[in-house]
């Protein structure tokens, strides 16, 4: 393997899951394996899945474990080159030109397109530094198709071309994680450059562990029945299935209410914590026959 390609955060799959667990992220086999591969092969990792399963959390956990700085590019409709890559500081350039009235155009031109007048945006920031970096490109599907083209150069060669300055190549590859909610199909070209991970709701056993690690006061039996109930809700056809974050919220609520078993009255009172649509609430109450 090419020595420069890997980001070199981890040595084995076990190490990934152990160290992620230390910072409170319990990873499944799939997550641990793909994170290890992304690190080892130096490829970006595209994580897709429903909202609230911990996609963004994964990037934060990796950054925390590796002691790397986290650079985040939040995508939205209309995000463009000047928001994602770099921008020239026009105001400062104007000031520089007015300050040096006497000098020739040649001098001014070489000067105003220097590093000093460059405003680096997340993508350039992630590539320029020499310290270990985790680059999180969040909600990639929200960005327009043109931005994907921009990402292609960055993600395949880890370099950025600024016409006035030349090509800037990464001294040290960042660990790149892209997330997507699949509201738009990402282009085939972008997908081909990434490793793909579909992050789904964790299996019950893992979810019980997650809940108990986040809500330490909760006893095993209640955690199990909470997870079972959430599992039943996810199996229904709801507008918004409860996410892991909501399971944790619910567990906290139950703890605060002082409930020791999951009975009808408690569930009816607290169902609003995990279901956010009136229609869902009605349907769930009907299915669970909470009268």
């Amino acid at each position: 393997m090419d020595e420069q390609r890997e980001t070199g955060f981890f040595d084995s799959v076990e190490e990934v899951s152990d160290r992620l667990a230390e910072v409170g992220y319990l990873a499944s086999t799939a997550v641990a394996t793909t994170v290890f591969l992304a690190d080892r092969l130096g490829k970006p990792l595209l994580v897709e899945g429903p909202a609230g399963v911990g996609k963004t959390e994964l990037a934060k956990a990796v950054a925390a474990v590796a002691g790397a700085r986290l650079v985040r590019l939040q995508c939205y409709e209309g995000v463009d080159e000047s928001r994602a890559l770099y921008e020239w500081n026009h105001a400062k350039q104007l000031l520089r030109i007015t300050a040096g009235r006497e000098e020739s155009w040649e001098q001014a031109r070489t000067d105003i397109f220097g590093e000093e007048f460059l405003l680096p945006r997340p993508l350039l920031t992630a590539i320029r530094g020499s310290e270990p970096t985790v680059l999180l490109i969040d909600e990639t599907d929200k960005a327009d198709v043109e931005v994907e083209g921009l990402l292609l150069e960055v993600l395949s060669d880890f370099q950025v071309t600024v016409p006035e300055l030349g090509t800037i190549t990464a001294e040290r590859r960042p660990f790149v994680l892209l997330t997507s909610n699949a509201s738009r199909e990402l282009s085939e070209a972008l997908r081909r450059r990434c490793l793909f991970l579909h992050l789904d709701f964790p299996d019950p056993e893992l979810e019980v562990r997650i809940v108990r690690s986040r809500v330490p006061g909760l006893d095993q039996v209640l955690a199990e029945s909470v997870v079972a109930a959430v599992g039943a809700l996810r199996a229904m056809e709801l507008r918004k299935a409860p996410s892991v974050a909501e399971t944790i919220d619910w567990a906290r609520t139950l703890l605060a209410l002082g409930a020791d078993t999951l009975d009808d009255a408690v569930v009816r009172r607290s169902l609003g914590v995990i279901l956010k649509h009136q229609e869902d609430l009605r349907r769930a109450a009907e299915k669970l026959t909470l009268v």
């Binding site: 799959v13 086999t29 799939a30 394996t33 793909t34 591969l37 992304a38 990792l45 897709e48 899945g49 085939e188 997908r191 081909r192 490793l195 793909f196 991970l197 579909h198």
Partner: peptide
């Protein structure tokens, strides 16, 4: 050595959609 890890690893490299 580990079949489940190999499965996930190959899936990450070969698949593009769930």
């Amino acid at each position: 050595a580990d079949r489940e890890r190999l499965r996930e690893g190959l899936a990450a490299a070969l698949l593009r959609a769930h």
